[in-house]
């Protein structure tokens, strides 16, 4: 029951609120939503910078058309898409009282898919890098590495966060505080897939079309 989480909030409200008894969990999650939106601004600015650099910042480096192919990025995209789905199954089961084993199972699968995504991304970076296409070559490559890399850093921190949560679940059992944290990681993870839709489309799909 959510009653255990209710009013454990630091500023616990004593009087009934306008919109009924508001509980701390939903407030924390709403705060996290706002943080995600702020993060989204960062990504959108990076994408705008990429759009400009891909247009005017090729300099002596390769153009997106020369650099990208769709094979690996599509596999990568699928891995992340499946992972966002499995995370959904993880939090959905948790809400409806699935066993902890099952919840952790879905989480492990999600993080593993995230790791596959990251692996492919790093492999691609490595390939470009060894061909001499480093971020120091042109404005376009700078924008490419930093945009995709920023997303990759988010995925990395999501994986670390997930591992920490699994350790905490082992210590605490599945209490409401951990459920709230898991839901927030879930939102973070879903948001990363949404950001990846924009990245995949702008960088790779539109890149090979340019």
């Amino acid at each position: 029951m959510s009653a255990t989480m209710t009013n454990t909030g630091a500023a616990g409200h004593s009087a009934p609120h306008d919109h009924g008894h508001h509980d701390k969990t939903s407030t924390v999650i709403f705060g996290f939503w706002i943080f995600l939106m702020s993060d989204l601004i960062a990504f959108s600015l990076m994408i705008a910078n990429y759009a400009d650099a891909e247009w005017h910042g090729i300099a002596n480096g390769p153009s997106p058309h020369e650099l990208f192919s769709l094979g690996l990025p599509t596999i990568e995209t699928m891995a992340l898409l499946i992972s966002t789905f499995t995370f959904g199954l993880c939090t959905l089961g948790m809400k409806y009282g699935a066993s902890m084993k099952r919840t952790v199972g879905w989480l492990v699968l999600t993080l593993a898919l995230g790791a596959i995504f990251l692996g492919i991304e790093l492999y691609e970076f490595h390939e470009f890098w060894t061909e001499g296409n480093t971020p120091q070559v042109s404005g376009f490559l700078t924008a490419y590495y930093s945009l995709v890399g920023l997303h990759g850093l988010h995925v990395t921190s999501g994986i670390i966060w997930g591992i920490i949560l699994m350790v905490q679940m082992k210590h605490f059992g599945m209490n409401d505080l951990l459920k709230s944290r898991l839901v927030r990681l879930g939102l973070f993870w879903h948001m990363l897939d949404i950001v990846w839709i924009a990245l995949f489309t702008k960088v790779y799909l539109m890149g090979v079309l340019s």
Binding site: T25, S26, F30, T91, L92, K95, Y96, G97, V183
Partner: peptide
């Protein structure tokens, strides 16, 4: 996703409905 707990179980219609959405 602001509710982290439901009083219904995984065999409920609500769960199946939510699952269908995913």
């Amino acid at each position: 996703m602001s509710h982290i707990n439901s009083d219904k179980g995984m065999d409920s219609g609500e769960y199946k409905h939510a699952m269908a959405r995913y």
